[in-house]
């Protein structure tokens, strides 16, 4: 390096560091690129270590302590987990969340697939643009603010939904006031907001089905449901898996809708895992117990995702 610098009088006059940064040799360039690489990833790696990777380990660690933030943490071993398996409220929140995920993701994928197939078959450009905007817009709204709107619409006595149902002879439904209906109402609200996500993904997946496959199906006379089951769904199966995996991960974390619309009620009918975690850690200041619930949720997400990939071997078709 320094030999080269001496050979070039122009760069010899520059400060040494600058000479290093501007020297033309190939080995020097590789070294500079490597140094630049480390420098460039530094902010991201640092941020992720401090605010994601570190905290995940800390959550795990905190779950073995009893801590109310004010006093110093006290090691309690597995006591928080022991408490968890005997805490009917927390266990119930996992059951509630499980029901919610199953209902919400199934409904979301089914409806958005139908909408995507419908829009895909629509020729008019203007209609396509309109449908895409209509089905997509709710996704862009804030779950918390839009939950306010839907809570008003689902209001048992003054809500527009019961008003129109009343017009067709259906008696007022206690959407948010009965433990039987409340979870369904949360599911409908969530699906309404999230449908645009899977809709857009399916629309892209449908557009990606090669024309020769479609032509072959036409030649074979494959029509209607048969065509749908034998060609469209298998060709779309990797997209369906992607939608199901992302959909389940998102739904397992549901919080804003039940928090705003029912605050977990009536009773505990809509109290989800994240709500119980939030209440434990931030309302009751049981940092250790809240962390234990967070760890269980994280593990549940990993396990459910792994199961989905495992099961996908039997139904996902890769071209």
């Amino acid at each position: 390096m320094s030999v080269q610098a001496r050979e070039h009088p122009a760069s010899a006059r520059r400060p040494r560091l600058f000479a290093k940064l501007t020297e033309p040799s190939l080995a020097g360039m590789a070294r500079r690129k490597a140094a630049m690489g480390y420098l460039f990833i530094l902010p991201t790696v640092l941020g992720i270590v401090i605010f994601t990777a570190g905290p995940v380990l800390a959550s795990f660690g905190l779950s073995f302590f009893e801590w109310n933030v004010i006093d110093s943490p006290k090691w309690v071993g597995l006591q928080n987990y022991d408490h968890f398996v005997h805490d009917s409220r927390a266990l119930n929140s996992f059951v509630t969340t499980g029901k919610f995920v199953l209902l919400a993701v199934t409904l979301q994928i089914f409806l958005s697939l139908l909408l995507a197939i419908g829009v895909q078959a629509t020729r008019s450009k203007i209609l396509r643009y309109f449908f895409r905007a209509a089905f997509f817009l709710p996704l862009l709204t804030s779950a918390a603010s839009i939950a306010i709107v839907l809570a008003y619409m689902f209001h048992q006595d003054f809500g527009v939904i019961n008003y129109y149902l009343g017009k067709i002879g259906i008696a007022h439904i206690p959407w948010l006031n009965s433990s039987g209906w409340a979870l369904i109402t949360i599911v409908l609200t969530y699906v309404w907001q999230q449908i645009g996500f899977t809709f857009i993904i399916f629309l892209g997946g449908l557009a990606g089905i090669p024309a020769d496959v479609q032509d072959a199906a036409d030649l074979d006379g494959a029509t209607g449901w048969r065509r749908m089951w034998d060609i469209t769904i298998p060709m779309l199966s990797p997209t369906l898996l992607f939608a199901a995996v992302i959909g389940v991960i998102g739904a397992l974390q549901v919080f804003a809708e039940p928090f705003v619309m029912t605050n977990g009620g009536p009773g505990d009918a809509t109290r989800t895992v994240v709500m119980v975690m939030y209440e434990s850690a931030f309302s009751f200041l049981q940092i250790g117990y809240g962390s234990a619930i967070a760890v269980v949720l994280f593990v549940a997400i990993l396990v459910v995702t792994a199961i989905q990939f495992r099961l996908s071997r039997s139904w996902v078709f890769y071209q």
Partner: peptide
């Protein structure tokens, strides 16, 4: 890693 798995330590 979901937000919930990190939010308590981040808050601390």
């Amino acid at each position: 890693i979901p937000l919930q798995a990190t939010i308590i330590p981040v808050f601390v």
